[in-house]
C-alpha cells in the first residue's frame, strides 16, 4: 500500500499529462469517426461517448496499478470487444457472487452501511473489503479531481 501510494505521489504529474493526452486523442478520434451534428440526440450520443472516453483515458492513464482503474479497464475492454450479452451476464453474476461472498464480512464487521454506497460509486468496489475500498476511494478522488481540472481547462479553452 505504502509503496504504491509513494509511487503515486512521485509522479501524479504523469497521470495528469497522460490523461490529458489520451483524452484529447480520444476526442480527436471520436470527432473523426462521428460526423458532428447539432441535434439533441447526436449531442447526447456524443456526450455518452465523451464520457466513456474520459473514463477510459483516466483509467488507462492510471494503468493497472489500481483496482478501480483495473475494473474500469475491464469494463471498457468488455464493451470494446463487443462481447456477448451472455458473457457479460456471466461476469456480472460472478462479480455479484464474489461481492456477496467477500463483502459479507465487512458488512457484518463495520457498522457503517454507507460503505456499500461507496462500493457502488467506486468502480470495482463491490469486491473490496473496507480497507482497500477506502484506499481506492482516496486514489479515485484524486484522479477525479485531476480529471475535472483537465476537462474544465479544455472546456474553458474551447468555449472561450
Amino acid at each position: 500500500m505504502m509503496t504504491s501510494r509513494q509511487h503515486l505521489t512521485t509522479n501524479p504529474s504523469s497521470i495528469k499529462t497522460r490523461f490529458a493526452y489520451l483524452f484529447l486523442r480520444n476526442l480527436k478520434r471520436l470527432n473523426k469517426y462521428r460526423p458532428t451534428s447539432s441535434s439533441s440526440r447526436a449531442v447526447y450520443q456524443r456526450y455518452g461517448m465523451i464520457k466513456f472516453a474520459a473514463d477510459a483515458s483516466m483509467a488507462s492513464a492510471v494503468g493497472s496499478r489500481r483496482a478501480w482503474s483495473r475494473a474500469t479497464l475491464l469494463k471498457i475492454r468488455n464493451r470494446a470487444l463487443n462481447c456477448t450479452f451472455l458473457k457479460r451476464r456471466r461476469i456480472h453474476a460472478l462479480r455479484r457472487r464474489r461481492a456477496e461472498r467477500k463483502s459479507r464480512n465487512p458488512r457484518q464487521e463495520c457498522a457503517f452501511g454507507q460503505a456499500n454506497e461507496l462500493r457502488r460509486l467506486v468502480p470495482g468496489g463491490e469486491v473490496m473489503d473496507i480497507c482497500n475500498l477506502l484506499d481506492e476511494t482516496a486514489h479515485y478522488i484524486k484522479c477525479l479531481n485531476t480529471q475535472v481540472q483537465v476537462m474544465r481547462n479544455i472546456v474553458d479553452f474551447y468555449s472561450s
Binding site: L27, N31, T36, S38, V43, Y44, R46, Y47, M49, I50, K51, A53, A54, L118, L121, V122, T137, Y140, I141, L144, N145, Q147, V148, M151, R152, I154, V155, Y158, S159
Partner: peptide, 22 residues
C-alpha cells in the same frame, strides 16, 4: 465522489455541446 462524477458528466456534456468548434 458523486459530485465529482457529476462534474465529469457535466463537463463531458459541455464538451459534447461545444464539439463542432472543438
Amino acid at each position: 465522489v458523486q459530485s465529482l462524477q457529476r462534474q465529469v458528466e457535466f463537463l463531458s456534456m459541455k464538451l459534447a455541446a461545444v464539439n463542432p468548434r472543438l
